[in-house]
Amino acid sequence: MKPTPKTLQVFLPEGTPAGIQIAELTTRIVQAISVPRTHLKQFFERPEAQYVGTYFLFGGEDDSSKPLAYIGQTEDLKQRLRSHDANKEFWTRAVILVSRTQSFTQAHIKWMEWQAIAQASKANRYKLENGNAGSEPFVTEAIHAEVEEIFETGALLLQSLGYPIFEPLISGGGGKKGKGEDETEWFLKGPTANAKAVLTTDGMVVRAGSLCRKDFVDSAKDNPVARKRDKLVENGILVDKGESYELTEDYPFKSPSGAAAIVLARTANGWVSWKNKAGKTLRKVKQAD
């Protein structure tokens, strides 16, 4: 189904986007409240801190191979977030989904938590600090219809705030469509390297099964790219395949050059390194569009 136009409203109660943000679609009851960890005290003074809600904690170390997230639900947001502030170190921001009409029940938030963990695990953009989703909680037919719409709205609000936790890296398995299929897949070969990728709105997604050169050239052994590669190996995203490392899953890079550097184990200009099936560089194809 083709997406329909929507109006997103973001209210800044502290007058700055660095503080608390309250996002909503003007025709829906769901609100997403984004709270920096350093602004918990201000949030606890707001009425929403007493609401029932499903929440997400986002963060992670700078050198993590993936951003970290934790998903939960509670009937006492103030108490639960205070506990996480004392006991969980990784997170820097919480995003909470609540009803501005205070109509969520425990059945709503338990199903939302289950669906959120299941869909976030499937999308595999974030490393979840949760266990598995378990079995689907029972809800009545009427509530099921409600929570599906609530979840859809919440997912859109999270993505709008910069947290596309439920969005697959490559939509529909085919990525961003160009004028032809040969322009949707990009290839890169080098010494003991052979990779395939898709260019998306978020950057370059290198496909699972791609082979990356194992040994960095001398000039690149101590740069951030080498440290990034080591972190991917440490987390099992790159595995030893003899002369090469192999990607075990689709993995996003913010730029074509960042992706090319990991594949080739050296600094590289991804706009000229990645080529389509016709042998045209990424730069040439995009400049011609």
Rank of each mutant, 00 (worst) to 15 (best):
D62R: 14
F56R: 08
V52C: 10
Y55I: 03
H39W: 03
A32F: 11
H39S: 11
L57P: 04
D62G: 00
D62I: 08
V52M: 08
A32P: 03
L25K: 04
Q42V: 14
S34N: 14
P36W: 09
I22V: 11
R46F: 09
L25T: 04
G53A: 12
F56C: 07
A49G: 01
G60P: 02
G60R: 01
T38A: 14
I22S: 02
E48Q: 15
F44C: 10
Q50A: 06
E61T: 03
A23G: 00
I29S: 13
L40C: 08
D63S: 07
Y51C: 10
R28S: 05
I22K: 10
H39N: 12
K41N: 13
F44T: 08
E24N: 14
V52N: 11
L40A: 07
S64V: 01
Q21V: 00
F56D: 04
L40P: 00
V52R: 12
S34W: 06
L40N: 09
V30N: 07
R46T: 13
E45H: 15
G59R: 01
G53R: 10
R28Y: 06
D63W: 06
P47S: 14
F56V: 06
S65E: 10
A32Y: 05
F43V: 14
S65G: 13
T26A: 11
T27Q: 12
Q50L: 05
I22W: 00
S64A: 08
Q31E: 13
I33T: 08
G53V: 11
K41R: 12
E48K: 10
F56G: 07
I33N: 13
I22G: 01
S34C: 15
A49K: 02
T54W: 01
F58T: 04
Q31T: 11
T54F: 03
F43I: 05
G53N: 12
L25M: 12
Y51F: 14
G53L: 12
I33K: 12
P47Y: 09
Y55M: 06
H39R: 14
D62F: 06
Q21M: 02
S34G: 08
Y51N: 13
A23H: 00
Q42M: 13
F58Q: 01
P47D: 13
V35T: 11
Y55D: 05
A23S: 10
V52H: 09
V52Q: 10
Y55K: 03
Q31Y: 11
T38V: 07
L40T: 09
S64H: 06
P36V: 13
